[in-house]
Computed example of a mutant assay.
Amino acid sequence: MEFKTNYINPDIKLSVFEDELFKTEALFEHHLLVWFISGETKIIQAGASYVFNAGDIFLIPRNQVATVINYPKDGLPHKAVAMHLTVERLRDFYSGIEVQSITDINDKIYAFKNHPLLQSCFSSLLPYFDLQEKFPEALAALKIKEAITILRTIDKNVDGILANFETPGKVDLVKFMESHFMFNLPLEKFGYLTGRSLSTFNRDFRKTFQATPQKWLTRKRLELAHYQLTAYAKKPVDVYLEVGFEDLSHFSFAFKKHFGYIPTAISRR
């Protein structure tokens, strides 16, 4: 696997991936603004999925969990520039700005296609990745402020995301887990997203579902995989990553143990 990440600043990076695919489960601690140079990315969230290609620019809100699958395409590597919009930088940016309170916050991914202002902001960073000199923090702060200002200019609703500094509160466990079970996150992360410590999450989970989190998650992922294979005639290789498994052979083993037959047997019925 050939995966390279070049940071010119802790909050600004260029990533290059040249293998067949690269998949990760991500809980975004900071808002992430991304510009694709080449390749393709599929992002799967609870109830939504997105596909982005060369030239696309998008914003992933923080505290959102997603499956991210990156592919090279058209003979070119998967290549992207990403900018972390941290809470600290955003607090500083909004300190002198009055923002109208927004109660219904949308956690969707914001897509900006190849907006010329954002593209210009990102492309101006490319020469710095080839320099040996240290990228000045003052310049990084200016570029990030430029990006935030452009976002607010082209989308008036983005303040509702960027100026929201709250941490996740305690949420309904059944509703959350039924819509997020396909994400292969540590239990500590599930606890954080539901507003619970790890011990409280485990206690509430066993009481609510009458099972351990590991057993329940495996069963739900296998049931979703079975549905995808039967209802949409998908192949196991196209399903296992999206339902939360990391390895095809492990998926096949667990599938047979649960259903009594291997997943490829469905297509032969």
Rank of each mutant, 00 (worst) to 15 (best):
L118A: 08
T200G: 00
L14A: 07
N184Q: 09
E188N: 09
D19Y: 11
Y240K: 00
H30W: 09
Y71H: 13
N157D: 15
Y7P: 09
E29K: 15
K145I: 07
S120G: 15
V51M: 04
Y261P: 00
P136T: 11
L142M: 07
E137P: 13
K257L: 06
I60T: 15
A231R: 10
S199T: 14
I8E: 09
F58Y: 11
G195F: 04
P213E: 07
H180P: 08
H180D: 08
Y261R: 14
S123V: 11
F209D: 12
P168L: 02
A265V: 13
S199I: 12
H84F: 12
L21R: 05
F176A: 03
D56E: 14
N53I: 08
G244P: 02
L117P: 10
S267V: 09
D155P: 11
L229I: 13
I69L: 06
N70G: 03
N70W: 04
Q228R: 12
M83Q: 05
N53F: 12
I144W: 05
S49T: 04
A233S: 10
E98N: 07
E2F: 08
V239K: 05
Y227F: 13
T103K: 09
L241I: 12
E25M: 06
K134M: 10
T149P: 07
I43H: 00
F122I: 01
I148P: 02
K42L: 05
E18K: 03
R268F: 14
A231M: 05
E98Y: 12
M182C: 04
N106G: 04
R219Q: 07
R91F: 07
Q214N: 03
L224W: 08
L198R: 04
I154G: 01
Q214F: 04
T41E: 11
K113F: 15
G195N: 09
S38L: 01
H250F: 03
W216R: 00
R221D: 01
V237Y: 05
L90C: 08
K215D: 02
I262Y: 15
F93A: 08
Y261L: 14
I43L: 02
A111F: 15
T103S: 13
Q100S: 15
K215T: 05
F93G: 14
K234T: 03
T218I: 07
L27M: 00
A54I: 06
R221W: 05
G160F: 04
T218M: 04
D56F: 05
Y261M: 11
A80W: 05
L193H: 08
T103N: 10
D159N: 10
K207T: 14
Y7G: 11
K207V: 10
R203M: 13
F58E: 01
V87I: 14
Q214R: 02
L90K: 03
D247W: 04
K256R: 15
I150M: 12
A163P: 09
M182F: 12
H250P: 00
L131A: 12
L229E: 00
A46M: 08
H115R: 03
E25Q: 14
V99S: 14
F190D: 03
D159M: 06
K170R: 09
G47P: 02
E166A: 12
S179G: 05
P127D: 10
Y71M: 03
F58N: 05
T103M: 09
T230K: 12
S179N: 15
K175E: 13
T230F: 06
K175F: 02
M182L: 06
H115W: 05
K257R: 14
R89K: 14
